[in-house]
């Protein structure tokens, strides 16, 4: 298996997109998935439990120093940046917002690209800001695979469109086709 991890970034409209995606991935899907979904700083983590209920994968909030394991999906906790270390564990940071966001997609993607190099898949879904663009550039620079939700099919097209405008993307696809592609790749 070529790829060792998948990072996903989503903002407005992301809850629907993630629910769709994680309802469709089969229980044997073993590549670990790491997600930043923009949420309000006062939001709790209840939506993660709801997402887990709808998924056949094991979805949980990422803990600091936690080891990244196959078959698991990790979500960045609200109000913390989530970073991947080279030993494939997580770090959290309560530092400044990046692109007005904490957690920021760029912070996750850039650190994951350093850790996984060409064994990483980056996916940008719906959203209405430009977080994730620099992160996806880093994923590509390190040899990873870049997948973006087709802006025309996204609830909020701005975020995927920004990535497409600034990076050489491998695949621009509607959600259903992203799922099919992931099933082929793993």
């Amino acid at each position: 298996m070529k790829y060792e991890a998948i990072v996903i970034g989503a903002s407005s409209g992301g809850l629907n997109a993630l629910t769709f995606l994680f309802s469709a991935l089969p229980p044997g899907f073993s590549i670990p998935i790491i997600v930043v979904q923009h949420v309000g700083s006062r939001s709790d983590s209840q939506w993660i439990d709801l997402l887990n209920d709808k998924s056949k994968l094991h979805i949980k909030e990422a803990d600091e120093k936690e080891k990244i394991e196959p078959g698991h999906t990790y979500i960045a906790p609200p109000n913390y940046h989530l970073l991947v270390e080279k030993d494939k564990t997580f770090s959290l940071a309560a530092s400044e917002r990046v692109n007005f966001a904490r957690p920021s997609i760029d912070v996750l993607f850039e650190s994951a690209a350093e850790a996984y190099k060409d064994k990483l898949i980056g996916i940008i879904l719906t959203g209405s800001n430009a977080d994730g663009t620099a992160g996806m550039q880093k994923v590509k620079a390190c040899g990873g695979l870049a997948i973006v939700q087709d802006p025309e099919t996204a609830e909020s097209p701005l975020m995927p469109a920004s990535v497409i405008a600034n990076t050489a993307i491998d695949y621009v696809l509607p959600l259903e086709n992203i799922i099919n592609l992931l099933l082929k790749l793993y």
Binding site: L83, E85, K86, S91, A93, V107, E110, S111, E114, A115
Partner: peptide
């Protein structure tokens, strides 16, 4: 310190 954070 955590490497990823310091690197950033």
């Amino acid at each position: 310190y955590s490497e990823a954070h310091i690197r950033r």
